[in-house]
Amino acid sequence: MKAWERIVIGASMVIFVALLALVYTLGALGYRVPPSTPRDLAMVYLTMTFNPSNPLFSAMAPEAVTAIVWDYRGLDTLFETAVFFLAIIASVALMRGVSLPEKPPSSAEGMSLIVKTVTKLTIGMILAVAASIAFHGHLTPGGGFQGGATAAVAPLVALVVFSVYFLERSGVTKNRMLGLRSAGLLGIGLTAFLVLIGSLLSGGTAFVFQNQPKPAAPIGLPWRIDGALTGGTLFLFNVFEALAVSAGFTIVFLLLAVPEEEAIKVVRGGEDGH
């Protein structure tokens, strides 16, 4: 396709969409898009997310999004974490038996010294920002998913600038990351039962995934320790989720960086190339 044809098609699409929006607007006069008041459900979440006067129905975290993700709809997020886990495990299973060759090839040296030094500093800063985003998730915009995704940028940068052998030497191996990721998932599972365990030990009743005290379940985690807000279980969930997400993505990047010759040897080895 020639360049001018693409320009014409792109410009005509812009005009088409602009006219379509005009028709839509003319047909919808008197009806305001977006609406001027949010839905009733949104008002419930907005008024209940941090409400000391109604502690039985509040998540006691000023961040409404994190409160919904890990308190009001916490079980949903648990199952979505399970989907995440299965997708990563499926990728690992596709690459089973593939490992790095013992001796690094001479081309695996990475970029120049200046780039490497700057990158070392940058990786430290990326990890610091990621930790800040994850650990303050119950107070400001951020949380486990955001912090984990930000932290996963660091191993990717290291892969591009150094090499996969550098990561291997500095202790970022596939098995270790699998362990870290399992520790994160285990932490999420334990935090989900934390209040229930404490409640059963003291002879009361509680719900699974409980954070603050609820009717008929009077035990909850403290939402403030010495004046600092913790959001109860939200802080723990954010920390463990950041661990699981960043380690999970790091596994996939490590597998993606294995030289292609090695992988083909494993895929076709023994058979006559299909």
């Binding site: 949010p38 839905r39 459900l41 949104a42 979440y45 907005l46 997310t49 409404a64 999004v65 409160a67 919904i68 993700v69 709809r73 949903d76 997020t77 979505e80 989907v83 995440f84 997708a87 990563i88 499926a90 990728s91 596709l94 949380g143 998913f145 955001q146 984990g148 995704a149 997400v245 999970g248 993505f249 996939v252």
Partner: peptide, 22 residues
């Protein structure tokens, strides 16, 4: 603004990345 769609989209993006990697 409504926090519920944001909470749903937040997890959808990360899981979408994992599925894309697969």
């Amino acid at each position: 603004v409504d926090p519920l769609p944001q909470a749903l989209v937040l997890t959808a993006i990360v899981i979408g990345l994992a599925v894309t990697l697969f």
